[in-house]
Amino acid sequence: MAACDAKNRSGFQQIRSQGSTEPIKFELYYRESSNTRPITYELEIDEDNMGRPYVKEERLRQRVAKVG
């Protein structure tokens, strides 16, 4: 994770907000237009026992088209 190692960032622990020990979570919601199904991308980054960041969970979802 290059962002963690950038100059003056001091590693993964400093990127977390307010000293939290919880994983960092991102959720992106995208919709091309009002008549397309939305897509959601979720990413969760945590730290292993050695202090190295890793992707704990990653998910890509698209809503099911309405039947009817």
Rank of each mutant, 00 (worst) to 15 (best):
N8H: 11
Q13N: 12
D5V: 12
T21V: 10
E32D: 04
L28V: 02
S20H: 05
D5C: 12
G19C: 00
S33Q: 02
Y41K: 07
A6R: 14
I15C: 15
R37S: 11
N35T: 09
R59L: 12
E32I: 05
Y41N: 09
R59Y: 05
I39P: 01
T21P: 03
V64Y: 00
R63M: 11
E47Q: 07
M50D: 15
Q13Y: 09
R16Y: 08
S20F: 04
F26D: 05
E58Y: 04
G68M: 08
R16S: 09
A3F: 13
M50P: 00
T40C: 03
R63I: 06
K56A: 03
M50E: 15
Y41I: 07
Q18H: 06
N49Q: 04
K7G: 12
K66D: 13
P38E: 03
Y30M: 02
G51V: 00
Y30Q: 01
T36M: 02
P38K: 03
K25N: 10
N8C: 12
C4F: 14
Y29T: 06
N49L: 06
K7H: 14
P53S: 03
G11K: 04
R16C: 08
Y54M: 03
F26T: 07
A65V: 03
A6F: 13
E58F: 01
E57C: 09
G68V: 10
R37D: 09
N35G: 09
E47G: 08
R16E: 07
I45E: 01
R31N: 06
G19F: 05
G11S: 10
Y41G: 03
Y41A: 13
D5F: 11
E58I: 07
F12K: 00
Q18M: 06
E57H: 13
L60K: 05
S20T: 11
D48C: 01
T40Q: 01
K25T: 15
D46M: 01
E27L: 00
G19H: 03
A65P: 08
E57T: 10
E58R: 04
K66W: 10
S33H: 03
